[in-house]
Amino acid sequence: MSQHENHGDHHNHGSLKSYVIGFILSIVLTIIPLVMVMNNMLDKTTTVIWILVMAVLQFIVQLFFFMHVREGEKPRYNVQTLVLGLVIVFTIIAGSIWIMMFNKY
């Protein structure tokens, strides 16, 4: 067992605290957009921007508090892959919308 402790750092540990914080933040970040949409608090475009920002924030929260991207051995190939992947996801979505915008019936 002691042997194991030595390379313990390699694993995605996290602590109960980080999970609880992540969980609470996620709940808050889910409720805010919900309230905004249900009560029609802002005009449409502003609401869309805000709820998308909340979704991205929640993604980041989960990334750090649940998936522990900060931990793990270096070089962090997983983070590099993720960042490039997200750039390409963004390109796919934004590019499609941009290109197809002029193709509406």
Binding site: L84, I88, T91, G95, W98, I99, M100, M101, F102, N103
Partner: peptide
């Protein structure tokens, strides 16, 4: 490798889209 993901629309220039695209 990276740039290859930013050129796809040249396969259908004639489709008709905005000049900026």
């Amino acid at each position: 490798a990276v740039a290859s993901f930013f050129t796809w629309a040249h396969h259908f220039f004639t489709m008709g889209t905005s000049a900026s695209v």
